[in-house]
Design a binder for these strands. Structure first.
Lengths: 124, 124
DNA sequence: ATTATATGGAACCTTTTGGTTTCATGTCAA
DNA sequence: TTGACATGAAACCAAAAGGTTCCATATAAT
């Protein structure tokens, strides 16, 4: 929601496997802190801290319902990650397509593949 | 190259903005450690450590050429990230498409949007 | 042969991370 | 009203992260 400086960004938020698993759980349904904790071998307090980090990255939001705090997935910030990835996709998919071509046309373009491997086919 | 346990995975490797910038630099061309360092305000030793982490995640590889060590981008491991993202894309793109539909058909489906917001439109 | 360059590695430092335990508080249920 | 439950918050801890400086070694250039 906020547009100013966040302490944790999306890249940091998803760097931890526990947090990734929390996100996955929340794709199924909204869950309280205790419900989330029941899926992990660590303490409720530790999970609450992970939720705070995910929350700072706007990947989840929590609302108080009675004595529970219900957390909900907010996948939109992952779009930033997708955009970041798109830039690199062209590089590795290019390599894969050259490989695919090599497989489909055996014994034809070893040189082309090798040049790609050592990066001589980049501009500049 | 190695197929066994890695100390750092792709998610951790890209969590740091300096490392992301190193990757970006390496999309342009292969670079030595000193050349990479010249783009940052931190020490050569610090950059070398970042390169080791990127290397452990198989995102770069370095080869010794004379007294220099030349690093090269290896974008393929980012495919794992893409796969991970693909799972979440359906969620947020679904939300965006509902929103788009709402904008294009004003005053029609507030209920549908609200149900989506609280997660009732998921299977299971 | 000497000097400058490029890297490697060790030792050290501070902050952050990912956890814990303990205690306080608010809310639901009997 | 008395527990039981759900969370919040503080204090603490060990290890990892992200740096630094210093020194050693290999290679290049004069």
């Amino acid at each position: 929601m906020s547009a100013f400086q966040q302490k944790h960004d999306v890249f940091q938020a998803i760097a931890d496997s526990t947090r990734r698993e929390v996100l996955r759980l929340l794709t199924e349904k909204e869950l309280s802190i205790s419900e989330i904790t029941s899926h992990f071998p660590i303490s409720r307090t530790a999970i609450a801290k992970h939720l705070r980090i995910l929350s700072e990255a706007d990947l989840v939001s929590g609302r108080k319902v009675g004595r529970e705090k219900i957390y909900q997935l907010h996948p939109e910030p992952l779009a930033e990650l997708k955009q970041w990835l798109a830039f690199y996709e062209k590089f590795w998919e290019n390599k894969l397509s050259i490989l695919k071509h090599t497989v489909e046309n055996p014994g034809e373009n070893e040189l082309k593949l090798m040049k790609s491997e050592i990066g001589e086919d980049r501009e500049n």
